[in-house]
Design a protein around this nucleic acid. Structure first.
Lengths: 168, 168
DNA sequence: ACCTGAACACCGTTCAAGT
DNA sequence: ACCTGAACACCGTTCAAGT
């Protein structure tokens, strides 16, 4: 484990334990035993650090989807569960433009593959499914549904629609 | 137009012209002819200002949906068009918890009504539609789809699914 | 009642200097 | 090659003071 990976691991730890606003260069430096300016010997900017975290998040989510079975329902369940368990990483993975030239090759495709497969190979339908799942997750994470809203029922309705005309 | 509304209007102007990171208390003060600390005579905090902007956004989006005709397709078109035209206000409207006790009564319901109506009165289906639309819009605004992705086609597929079993 | 300048505790980032 | 302290240009916010 080189210094760069150590820093990424520490950043993940801060993100999971204390949320995105806690991830400052000074605090991250402290976590790995150096001052903030020294971090710039390992990452050109905080954005480059965030790109590394995004790659980590995408790989981890992709692996969770891979394990989900492959049905629309299983996929949806795995997607929502992962997002709720890792809200800050989910935000990084889905709400920042991908620095595709810096991303390890295949990471984006690997995360997308189970969705495309559940959509029967139709990429437009896969993106519709992605959009629906992302929207429900994002609204839930934002605390934006009215109090008492039955989020499970909204998911069930979404899953029902996207299961129609899909080989299960 | 009282001072409070003047400040909100100036904030909307900054948001639309220069994006969310440009909306600082110092710059907003400058736009309305005072120093940043004076803004705190009108708003207790920046969060309270953002809540006022959220209400403004919700009312404006609600009016746009009202004018959309009422079909799933028309509604989806109006939703996406408004969001792409007002990305910063859209983010405020949908990605921050609603301060419902401070919101003018009826604003949230008015924005939701056209969607619930298009869903035939089924609130779970309405939330599924909201989630799907929000997800597609949010991924598009984040620049998260791969280059060359046919976003129109993903919308078309989503609209097709949500039009099934809905009286048009 | 409304506005001000000065200050506080933070940010990300740069840079000359040390080893 | 790696790390440091000091500094810069920002934040949101507080507060004593002025009118």
């Amino acid at each position: 484990m080189n210094r760069r990976d150590e820093i990424v691991a520490a950043a993940v730890g801060i993100l999971e334990a204390a949320g995105p606003e806690a991830l400052t260069m000074r605090r991250l430096g402290h976590a790995v035993g150096m001052r903030a300016p020294s971090l710039y010997k390992h990452f050109a900017s905080k954005d480059e650090l965030l790109a590394a975290l995004q790659e980590h998040a995408l790989a981890d989510l992709g692996a969770a989807l891979e394990r989900s079975g492959g049905t629309v329902c299983g996929l949806a369940r795995a997607y929502r569960t992962w997002a709720l368990a890792h809200p800050a990483l989910y935000d990084l993975a889905m709400r920042h433009p991908l620095a595709r030239h810096r991303l390890a090759p295949g990471v984006e495709e690997a995360a997308a593959a189970p969705v495309v497969s559940a959509a029967g190979g139709d990429v437009d339908r896969a993106r519709a499914m992605w959009g629906a799942a992302h929207g429900l997750v994002d609204l839930e994470l934002a605390g934006r549904f009215p109090p008492g809203a039955d989020i499970d029922a909204a998911w069930a309705e979404t899953i029902r629609l996207f299961s129609m005309g899909t080989a299960q």
